[in-house]
């Protein structure tokens, strides 16, 4: 059984890490990071079977690929607090000579990262390839991936979505962060995508909604269901309904904080709403 309280405490600390990283360098993407704080925390702290340490091949463990690389603050926080690199290194986010680049990369050798992402729409293809490598290696582990909903406007995703079902890549669980927001406004306003569920289903995927995408318990339950549905000849898509900026009241439910850093006062307010649980870096 998942220890929900412990996971929630972890998420609270991750939120602090997100706003502090972004505040320090006055740049970065807090909105989407906060919206996915529960999901990525649950993945690494509860769901994924992970080996000690880090090796690029990741044979014998579950792997995660972040396609919407701009939510690097949440990824870095969860990776650091899951033991991939020292938590203090979060201090170097977006600074010169840092391994914590604006968007995640393997290029500087940061443990935990297996692909560069930032230019959108590429992560799912990579995840599908990694899933097929697992099959070749007879490695019975799962590939997880996360992409933004706006990111689905990139055509390469649909090549990968078509391919994964045609080739029965059923060891992948692809999650869409369905927050309904992108840089220029709501996804409905910028480029209405219609029913994402209907589209994935039409492409032959099993689709599962997690309506409370910022509720740790709901995520654990939903992702366990997704896991149960995998391995049956079809890829699995999770539609994770989240609130952008979740956990910081003035950032919630708006695209305004997609790529904007809080000032000193706003940081203080955000931190007051999320008291320290695991110790700040």
């Amino acid at each position: 059984m998942a220890d929900i309280e412990k996971l929630e405490a972890f998420v609270t600390q991750v939120r602090r890490d997100i706003v502090r990283q972004v505040h320090k360098v006055s740049s970065g993407h807090p909105g989407g990071s906060l919206g996915c704080a529960e999901f990525i925390s649950v993945l690494y702290q509860e769901l994924m079977e992970r080996k000690e340490g880090f090796d690029m091949d990741g044979i014998g463990e579950d792997l995660f690929f972040l396609s919407n690389g701009h939510i690097s603050p949440v990824f870095y926080s969860v990776l650091a607090r899951s033991g991939y690199f020292p938590v203090e290194e979060l201090n170097t986010f977006r600074l010169l000579n840092s391994r914590l680049q604006g968007h995640p990369t393997t290029h500087e050798g940061l443990p935990g990262v297996r692909i560069a992402s930032g230019s959108l729409g590429q992560g799912l293809s990579v995840a599908v390839g990694a899933a097929q490598a697992k099959k070749l290696n007879k490695d019975n582990h799962t590939i997880y991936t996360l992409m933004g909903d706006g990111e689905l406007q990139e055509g390469q995703n649909w090549e990968a979505i078509m391919y994964a079902s045609a080739k029965k890549v059923d060891n992948i669980i692809a999650t869409v962060d369905l927050n309904g927001q992108q840089i220029d406004g709501s996804t409905d306003h910028v480029l209405n995508m219609g029913s994402v569920r209907a589209k994935f289903e039409a492409f032959g995927w099993i689709v599962l909604d997690i309506e409370q995408g910022n509720d740790v318990e709901a995520i654990v339950k939903g992702m366990n269901q997704a896991k149960d549905l995998s391995g049956n000849g079809k890829p699995v898509c999770v539609l994770l309904h989240t609130i952008m900026g979740n956990g910081v009241d003035f950032m919630m439910g708006t695209h305004a904080w997609h790529g904007k850093a809080p000032n000193d006062e706003q940081l203080a307010s955000a931190l007051a709403q999320n008291p320290e649980t695991l110790g700040d870096y």
Partner: peptide, 12 residues
Amino acid sequence: NMMGIAAGLTIG
């Protein structure tokens, strides 16, 4: 998609 899948296949 082919280039992405190729990148993914190296992982493993």
